[in-house]
């Protein structure tokens, strides 16, 4: 399928941003690695919101009518895209309510602040789940139709958020070890889960040229697609050709799992065991690159059923 940069960056950034925010809220609430100071909180909040907003803005980049984007809120009843928009839309006021006491100076947690904090974290994770489900529910793309798809989105989001949080916490002078440990665990699970996703991708697809045409008497081959020039769908959905143009695609998968997820997990584990924060920064670079590559592969390799017709 077509892998527009805007969509790749959007999912990577918003995943990481929401993951970061969710974990940060927990760190704040439960003082993981030490209590969160107001300054750190404001910096973190700004950072988180910035990443998320950048991601969301990018997501409108592929709309033909970005200014009508608000219309996307209409169909929560059925559309994961709508649900994502609603979750993301709700996230901001809720996060604001969570942040409000801080902005006004207070830092003591009450049941009230805890409620908004948890709700913020929940909406953050929920948004990432909906992002995953946008793709996970597409029956036409067999590769995506796995329950692991949203799981991966969440794990990678949380994992990359954790790496960022490790750096932020360390920067703020708190103890990065517990978050690093959490992050290492998340990334390790993400690596395993992504590896599983890759292998499940190869389970036989139910759709074949025979089911696409109903012809069952022999090998079925597309002889002519009936149009000489390219169509919109060629461009939009036929870009597994893109992956085909990269002969090293199989290695990219290892790169994602190994260098993009497992290695940062190890680095974070080292940080948790007391190594310098610099390793977390390195992990951040790795996980960032890994997530982008992962997302690119996610789209570029996806085989849509229309290839049976094109």
């Amino acid at each position: 399928m077509h892998a527009p940069l805007s969509v790749i960056l959007f999912t990577v950034l918003s995943g990481a941003g929401f993951g970061f925010v969710a974990l940060f809220v927990l760190a704040d609430l439960f003082a993981i690695g030490g209590p969160v100071e107001r300054g750190e909180l404001l910096v973190a909040a700004l950072l988180g919101l910035l990443i998320i907003t950048a991601g969301l803005l990018l997501s409108t980049g592929h709309l033909t009518k970005p200014r009508d984007g608000w219309r996307a809120l209409a169909r929560v009843r059925s559309s994961w895209l709508s649900r994502e928009a609603v979750c993301a839309g709700l996230f901001f006021p809720v996060a604001a309510l969570y942040l409000l006491p801080y902005l006004m100076g207070g830092v003591e947690h009450t049941a009230w602040t805890a409620f908004w904090a948890l709700l913020t974290a929940l909406l953050a994770v929920a948004t990432v789940v909906t992002t995953g489900m946008i793709y996970g529910c597409v029956r036409a793309v067999h590769d995506w139709q796995q329950s692991l798809t949203p799981v991966n989105f969440v794990l990678i989001g949380l994992g990359s958020g954790a790496v960022l949080l490790t750096v932020v916490r360390a920067g703020a002078g708190a103890d990065p070890a517990p978050i690093a440990a959490l992050g290492a665990t998340l990334l390790a699970v993400a690596a395993a889960s992504k590896a599983a996703w890759f292998s499940w991708r190869h389970r036989p697809a139910g759709s074949t040229p025979a089911t696409a045409t109903g012809l069952t008497q022999g090998v079925v081959r597309l002889h002519d697609s009936g149009h000489s020039g390219p169509t919109f769908l060629d461009h939009e959905l036929q870009s597994d050709q893109i992956a085909k143009r990269h002969p090293a695609v199989a290695y990219y998968r290892w790169l994602v799992v190994g260098a993009g997820l497992a290695l940062p997990a190890l680095l974070l584990a080292a940080v948790a065991a007391g190594a310098g924060t610099l390793w977390a920064v390195l992990a951040l670079a790795l996980v960032g690159g890994g997530a982008v590559l992962e997302r690119w592969l996610f789209f570029a390799e996806a085989r849509h059923t229309i290839r049976l017709y094109y």
Partner: peptide, 26 residues
Amino acid sequence: ERCIGCNYCAWACPYGTRELDTASGT
């Protein structure tokens, strides 16, 4: 009038029967 050209439906349709008109954005 309502379509924002997100293409999501085109992705979701397994039959490849939806096409975006880039001039009208629908």
